[in-house]
Write a protein that binds this DNA or RNA. Structure first.
Length: 260
DNA sequence: ATGTCGTAACGTTTACGA
């Protein structure tokens, strides 16, 4: 089962680029971030005619997450628990039955947090603590769990082409990195780093200042696997070339292959 | 040129968030 994550930066603006990629990569499950659309305005036909079931958690103008799946989506939950006042659409989860195992898949769009310090950074750190609590809850069943999406965290300096440029940024501050590690330290495996070491691997290049042409990227889209899911991983990769196409998102897809 | 893009709105332009 191939599961991909893709921050598309606007479902309406990205529909053509997204369906082109779906036709080529043919993932079984896709976790989408930044729909920037309410549920009713998300086009379903382009996905359903390609065999995908669609679950969305949208919001007007900003944020918004979705799951596409060729297998049925069961027990869909919208929103990250832990704050009834939080109206931002950044979390969706569902169970997908594989041939050999059921996988709980969670799509997330973690808050950017800039400027830091400030209320937006406080919200980011609070959201990350809620993520840690939900991540811990899901380990209790000792079953495959996958949490993927735009974490808005540069885990280490090697994950940025110019780490010095991000030193004071909410994506790289020590508190952000520590909060990310607190989730890993529960027992989750970062899929990409379990298979690929070293610098030079990115999932985001800013639209500004020729970042793509200069390969001035950062690695902020991640897939975290519970121990039972990590046992089943047979591959992980970043679809880097997508960034060089017409009308690209500023992010590219990351995918994992799970023998489930 | 403080360098781009997508979305919303009292829209033909500005504000916001990234």
């Amino acid at each position: 089962m191939r599961i991909a994550c893709f921050n598309i930066n606007g479902i309406k603006a990205r529909l053509g680029a997204l369906t082109d990629w779906l036709d080529e990569a043919a993932p079984d499950v896709v976790l989408l971030q930044e729909l920037k659309s309410v549920d009713e305005a998300v086009p379903r036909e382009p996905f359903e005619e390609r065999g995908y079931n669609v679950a969305t958690h949208g919001q007007k103008g900003f944020n918004g997450v979705a799951i596409l799946s060729k297998r049925p989506l069961e027990d869909v939950r919208h929103g990250l628990p832990g704050d009834a006042q939080d109206e931002q659409a950044r979390w969706i989860e569902a169970t997908v039955m594989g041939d050999r195992a059921a996988v709980r898949v969670c799509g997330l769009y973690l808050p950017n947090g800039n400027p830091a310090p400030g209320p937006k950074y406080d919200y980011k750190l609070a959201w990350m603590e809620r993520l840690r609590v939900r991540a811990a809850e899901m380990l209790v069943n000792e079953e495959p769990v996958l949490m993927g999406g735009d974490y808005n965290v540069i885990p280490q300096d090697e994950d940025a082409a110019r780490p010095e440029a991000w030193r004071e940024d909410a994506l790289a501050l020590p508190q952000s990195r520590a909060a990310f590690r607190r989730v890993l330290n529960l027992g989750y495996t970062e899929a990409f780093r379990a298979r690929v070491q070293g610098p030079g691997h990115y999932t985001f290049w800013d639209y500004q200042a020729g970042a793509w042409n200069r390969n001035d990227g950062i690695r902020i889209d991640h897939v975290l696997l519970s121990p039972q899911a990590a046992d089943l991983m047979t591959g992980c990769g970043i679809d880097r070339d997508i960034r060089g196409r017409d009308k690209p998102s500023d992010h590219v897809p990351i995918w994992v292959e799970i023998d489930a």
